[in-house]
């Protein structure tokens, strides 16, 4: 008797199993949509966003450019008009609007170079950084203070007062040298040049000694 009842239930075993699986599949539809949930999760993004690690100071960047460090890529996220007015040497212009277009993905999503975002201040650059960081791109940095701070520190550094520490003077002379590298000329820089030229004049006296040798050779 037991066997017969069991056999009756077992007749429908496949339909019962199928029904359960269909129900479970329907459950999947209720799960939240994941298509919008691209990139790293929000908690991780928050901890990345809070950390000031992404900032690179203008002094560090100037040092890299002057030493012709080949390991970084400058990306200017301002619009084309501002980019044409002034940008750092070798910067690539990717306006913020076009940041995520496929044409530019190769610049941003790679592991070969350190990417440095820059804009007038660091607001737009930060926005670009947040979006790219969410997508999990690596080696991204932001120029702290942007072009405005670049001008204040590198192009036109403030002279230190007499009562400031010697570090400030050192920093100033470094920055001044950097600004000369980026094309700024100083009046005293030109004054120094003639001094160098005067040193050249005694060198021209040297050929006179050679002339004395020549008549000796002529005597032979």
């Amino acid at each position: 008797m037991v066997n017969r009842k069991l056999a009756k239930v077992l007749k429908f075993r496949y339909t019962i199993l199928a029904a359960i699986l269909v129900l479970l599949a329907a459950g999947l539809v209720l799960l939240p949509k994941y298509e919008k949930h691209e990139g790293i999760n929000p908690e991780e993004l928050l901890s990345n966003v809070i950390s000031p690690e992404r900032y690179i100071t203008s002094d560090e960047l100037a040092h890299k450019i002057i030493n012709q460090d080949p390991s970084f890529l400058l990306i200017d996220v301002r619009d084309e008009e501002n980019f044409k007015k002034y940008s750092l040497p070798n910067a690539i212009n990717i306006p913020l609007k076009n940041l995520l277009k496929e044409d530019f993905e190769g610049y941003i999503n790679q592991s070969q170079f350190d990417v440095v975002f820059l804009s007038n201040d660091n607001l737009y650059a930060d926005q670009a950084w947040v979006l790219c960081n969410r997508l999990g791109y690596k080696n991204l940095h932001v120029l702290k203070g942007g072009i405005n701070n670049w001008f204040n520190t590198i192009i036109n550094p403030a002279k230190p007062n007499e009562n400031m520490a010697s570090i400030d003077f050192q920093l100033y002379s470094n920055r001044k040298a950097a600004s000369m590298f980026f094309g700024v000329a100083y009046p005293e820089q030109v004054k120094k040049k003639p001094v160098v030229v005067k040193k050249v004049t005694p060198r021209k006296v040297v050929p006179i000694k050679k002339k004395k040798k020549l008549p000796v050779e002529g005597g032979c």
């Binding site: 007015k85 405005n148 001008f151 036109n156 100083y186 004054k191």
Partner: peptide
């Protein structure tokens, strides 16, 4: 926000001019 405060190219050109007049 994000105002371009300085004309850097202009500044560089001017510095070169100033320096070259004395030179």
């Amino acid at each position: 926000i994000e105002k371009s405060k300085y004309d850097i190219n202009g500044f560089i050109q001017e510095s070169i001019k100033k320096a070259s007049i004395k030179a």
